[in-house]
């Protein structure tokens, strides 16, 4: 069973190639706003390294948001087209899950601009506090009396930065990924759905 894991939703470009759950090749690099031109050259290099052909892929796992609007659309477009044409299953995890991995009691915060953050509290990959948007002041207040690990763009609230092992997290979260029944109708979860942007 060959699994292609892909994320371009936020500031990184991440690939993990799994063979029966084991990492065969991987890449996790900062790629802010360059995912569009970098995705395929990077994927092609990894596939060569792993001696995989496109037709070998049995399933795909991606992050479906939140993140940058363009970023989240890049990997999702690739996944939607690949999975529907090759008739292979597509699974999704949240970008915030990818940051938290299977660690216990982890609060994730990603820059949502305008002094806000995409936030969630997770425990071993499961949501204790649902994904949402908080102002940075709300984040500080929320974290005040909590004993949790904080990952993501912690510098926004002047917390020390903790490195995230995206490759390990993707691998560990694979069993938790949601299977997408109708790949054609899949859309990113932008979380910021103000009325002007509501699409009927």
């Amino acid at each position: 069973m060959k699994t292609l894991c892909m994320d371009s939703a936020h500031k990184h470009l991440i690939f993990v190639l799994l063979e029966d759950g084991n990492v065969v090749a991987s890449l996790a690099q900062e790629c802010w706003k360059r995912q569009s031109e970098t995705l395929f050259p990077a994927l092609i290099a990894l596939m060569e390294e792993a001696h995989w052909k496109a037709d070998d892929i049995d399933e795909v796992v991606i992050t479906d948001g939140p993140g940058s609007y363009t970023g989240v659309r890049i990997a999702m477009t690739v996944a939607k087209v690949l999975c529907t044409r090759k008739h292979i299953p597509l699974y999704c995890i949240s970008t915030l899950q990818l940051y938290a991995g299977m660690h216990p009691h982890t609060f994730v915060m990603l820059d949502a601009r305008s002094s806000r953050a995409y936030t969630a509290l997770l425990d071993e990959g499961k949501f204790l506090l649902d994904e949402g948007i908080m102002t940075l002041d709300e984040v500080k207040a929320y974290l005040k009396d909590k004993d949790v690990r904080v990952v993501g763009e912690t510098e926004l609230i002047d917390l020390a930065h903790e490195d995230v092992d995206f490759v390990e997290n993707f691998q560990a979260l694979r069993p938790l990924a949601r299977r997408i029944d109708n790949v054609h109708t899949l859309t990113p979860r932008y979380l910021k759905e103000n009325d002007a942007y509501l699409v009927k």
Partner: peptide
């Protein structure tokens, strides 16, 4: 991206 996916796959 869609075109590149088809060209690649």
């Amino acid at each position: 991206q869609a075109a590149k996916t088809l060209a690649w796959a």
